[in-house]
Write a protein that binds this DNA or RNA. Sequence first.
DNA 1: CGAATTAGTTTATTATATAAACTAAGATCA
DNA 2: TGATCTTAGTTTATATAATAAACTAATTCG
Lengths: 395, 395
Amino acid sequence: MRTGNISLVKKMNKQLVLKLIRDQHPISRADIAKTTGLNKATVSALVDELIAEHFVHESGIGESTGGRRPLMLRFNADAGSLIGVELGVNYLYAVLTNLNADILWEQRRSFRPSEGQEAIIDEMMELIEAAIRRAPATPYGVMGIGIGVPGVVHTESGTVVFAPNLRWDDVALAAVLRQRWPERPVIVENEAKLAALGEKWFGAGNEFAHFVYISAGIGIGAGVVLHHQLYRGVSGLAGEIGHHTINVNGIRCSCGNIGCWEMYASEKYIERRLAEEGRSEWLNERFSIAAMALAAESDEQLARILEETGRYLGVGLLQVMYAYNPEAVIIGGPLAQAGEYVIDPARQEVRKRILVKKESEPSIIVSKLKEKSCAIGAAASVLEAVVLPPEFAAV
Amino acid sequence: MRTGNISLVKKMNKQLVLKLIRDQHPISRADIAKTTGLNKATVSALVDELIAEHFVHESGIGESTGGRRPLMLRFNADAGSLIGVELGVNYLYAVLTNLNADILWEQRRSFRPSEGQEAIIDEMMELIEAAIRRAPATPYGVMGIGIGVPGVVHTESGTVVFAPNLRWDDVALAAVLRQRWPERPVIVENEAKLAALGEKWFGAGNEFAHFVYISAGIGIGAGVVLHHQLYRGVSGLAGEIGHHTINVNGIRCSCGNIGCWEMYASEKYIERRLAEEGRSEWLNERFSIAAMALAAESDEQLARILEETGRYLGVGLLQVMYAYNPEAVIIGGPLAQAGEYVIDPARQEVRKRILVKKESEPSIIVSKLKEKSCAIGAAASVLEAVVLPPEFAAV
DNA sequence: CGAATTAGTTTATTATATAAACTAAGATCA
DNA sequence: TGATCTTAGTTTATATAATAAACTAATTCG
């Protein structure tokens, strides 16, 4: 049971100070004391410890405001490195970053979906190995490895419970990596949830306490951040909203249900419509939403298909608003690259269908980290696990 | 900003001890120390304060387990009284309870929806006045007034922002009551959210950290409890899931949207189907789901209509699971009184449509407080606000 | 009947935040 | 230019609350 012993207080305050320095650096001890309400002496003591731990450094003298000039403090983004890996349906993408998610090294590899699990995991381990070799000399070195997968995950064990597009079923991914790197934290999590974390720490979600990240690609997944924290639900299924039924009498989804949202507001829908409209020239291997959006400028048929998709996207976004009532919805994934061809009809559809007046409409915005959301989010998950736990967030 | 000063620690521990006594009484100081991990001396000091504050009392000597016999502690449910009021579409229902939600007095009054706001609020104040008069002599007296309304609420100001079925719009309900009883806390909240609180504290939700209460009647509302706390969203709209679109090409809802869940899984649907099937004899003033369920035993047509409703209910429950992934879904409101005629088809529909295997299915259960959920929840909201704040719940 | 066991209290100690006094270093203005 | 004011940050003394250990109280068990 979580009792309040005195050291808890110290942990809370130390985290608070570190978060403040990270968010608002450069900042002086005096300013920290003012904005947190902590005593100057307390702040000084905590800052001294953070400096000794290499998470903070003094970065010179600031401007005077009528008295002694302050010593400015900065978050030390080079205290260690983070590794983030995105496992896609047919590619691996790995990044090595500092604690500020600046990319120090990255690599992308394709594989055939037909390759077996072992081969894919081997390739992933090679990538991680390469990243570790590239890691700069820092006080903490590589602080951990985060991995995003397109499926449902059991986080404690790091098992991929169910990943239909990979055809994975109960794969103990973290166990393999933990055996290889026993000293490093390994985090396995759903790709949309990690992308949400990425946007929260380093992207469009930074200013919000409650937001939902929507990963719209082949399917639709979501990462739900409530009270500054990722919400997973009891078994990590929270946010599987691509399988919300928006058309009880609609078409069958691969999940077994009928009329799932992701049958109407994803690449699946676009492909189906392209086929129906005899535009199968777009259905080749190099199919890309970005290219389609470009072509749509002078191709009304393509524009209409994108717009339809956007309208269906809006239907589901309405549900997101009623379910979570967030400050913002961040759209990411390939579909977000169609930009206003998709997003604008989605916004219109929401406005048309929504129950209450304008003030309560959350903003619908586009991912800031783009195709890097997941990998950077995977790195951010390590940061959160090791350096900046969210558990003390203001309730 | 929430800093950790030392008195926070004390608050946390005192709350923890009080919650434990409430949940597990009778319990000894020694047992509290064991289960919380707090030191015996700490527990004794906190318990002494709680006794001085009348929230706990010693209730005699317990059984020895091989040594000195323990002094047993109990939560003092008679330290004060709570008032809970449900404002329905055409009735008021008020309860006066002790801190254990035992009903000491209750009264129900009907009104015509055509009566004006002032008249309804006046009646409500009369009811509250009557409840205050009936309150027994206790250390704290009437500790506050909770009111549940069928609409969207702004809790800080206690304003009813939007209650379509009452045709209320921006009614500053709490302001009126606070003027009349300036010394008592007044809480105004959505009825489904309060019912969820009621089930959490005194009903079927007691054992769950994450659950969703569904209020299914004329419309559908929900109260979402995550991490033992009611989740409201940014503007109190979280849980307005009755307006989730389950049929994009369906029928128009009064909210302006098309194909809302509550057009298919509520009394509205049953009424529509009764009319369609020429069974309008059920559409009179005394229309009651419980009576229908009784008649359905020997009336296949009625049974079929209830079953259809249940199947549609299941379609939406699937969304609840994907959105919140709770441990349980509690069904309340009039529709829950049809029992297995509705609930069982709903369960079947969920099982048929769900993505993942059985372990992750939450249990779908029926409200324990029945038609009293909201009023008791309104009382519970006072308890939570004044005596047992949930903010220190384990994260 | 005495040793062992359990319940609960008292006393001394420790960790932490805070208030107040202090040093440091600059700005302002006569 | 130097006295005074202002702001930054440190040192010292104090208060609060948890804890450990020693203690008293009351019971079981052999």
